[in-house]
């Protein structure tokens, strides 16, 4: 599982790990806009290639990252598979009497390439920093302070609550609970979620009390020593030229 659940709050090393987090977030957004605005398969293929290079530079585990990139909701997969049959155009082949159009196939390919290129670049540029670094960088990028605090609290407690969830599931299993398609299963899961909410609230009361004790006045100081250096500008130039190349191939 990802950093959020592992409690793995290390920033990845590697060439991208040394670049200013703010530059990486902005780069991910610029790259996404560039890729999504293209339509030609050649340009999108190039974009996916750049995203792959970013993943290597971020030193992310290749197989796990590609699996994460390719995983999509079932409904997106179904949508892509039905597109050739729902878009009118030149018929390429027929499946059980339904004609598939070239335009539909192109559109499905276009969406798949864009979706994967954006997700891969996002995982490489932003997913390779720790969630806490992400929060601080977003704060420096002018996100409202209370949204950043909400993010930091959420990140801090996902791991704790996931462990609590697993304890509750273990307790259910030892009492012979096995999930199936039944009313009993839904009621049991409902009680499980309800119990987790109740415990979360009680935990938050203890946390607030403990924090008040230590002089919590509503905000934590957001420390950061982000400074844009030569390396960051070089990185920005690199990503911008990759985006420009992608758009140039699109224009050809």
């Amino acid at each position: 599982m990802a950093a959020v659940l592992d409690g793995d709050d290390h920033d990845h090393a590697g060439p991208i790990g040394r670049v200013d987090p703010r530059a990486r977030i902005v780069a991910a957004v610029v790259f996404a806009v560039a890729v999504v605005s293209c339509r030609q398969p050649a340009a999108l293929g190039l974009g996916l290639g750049f995203a792959f290079a970013l993943m290597l530079l971020a030193r992310l585990p290749v197989a796990a990252t590609l699996r994460r990139m390719a995983a999509m909701d079932l409904f997106v997969v179904v949508m892509l598979l039905t597109l050739p049959f729902t878009m009118p155009g030149d018929v390429v082949f027929e499946l059980a009497g339904f004609p598939a159009s070239r335009q539909g196939l192109d559109r499905a390919l276009e969406i798949a390439l864009k979706a994967n290129a954006v997700v891969l670049a996002l995982l490489a540029l932003v997913g390779s920093m720790s969630p806490v670094t992400l929060g601080h960088a977003l704060h420096r990028l002018r996100l409202p302070a209370n949204l950043v605090h909400l993010l930091l609290f959420t990140v801090r407690y996902i791991d704790v609550l996931h462990q609590e969830y697993q304890r509750l599931r273990t307790a259910m299993t030892t009492r012979g609970f096995r999930p199936s398609t039944s009313l009993h299963t839904l009621r049991s899961f409902g009680y499980l979620v309800g119990m987790m909410l109740v415990r979360a609230l009680e935990r938050s009361e203890r946390i607030l009390a403990a924090m008040t004790c230590r002089g919590f006045a509503g905000t934590f100081p957001l420390f950061d020593d982000f400074r844009l250096g030569g390396r960051d500008w070089a990185f920005a130039a690199l990503v911008l030229s990759a985006c420009a190349m992608t758009v140039a191939v699109e224009m050809l």
Binding site: P144, F153, R156, I158, Y165, S180, T181, V193, A200, S204
Partner: peptide, 28 residues
């Protein structure tokens, strides 16, 4: 965010984490 006053942020964050964990639950 406007309704999320300072002293509500810890509770909101922890409940937000709870909903994140709940979204990992798979029901057959």
């Amino acid at each position: 965010l406007r309704r999320l006053t300072i002293e509500k942020i810890p509770a909101a964050g922890i409940l937000s984490a709870t909903f994140f964990v709940a979204s990992l639950i798979h029901v057959p």
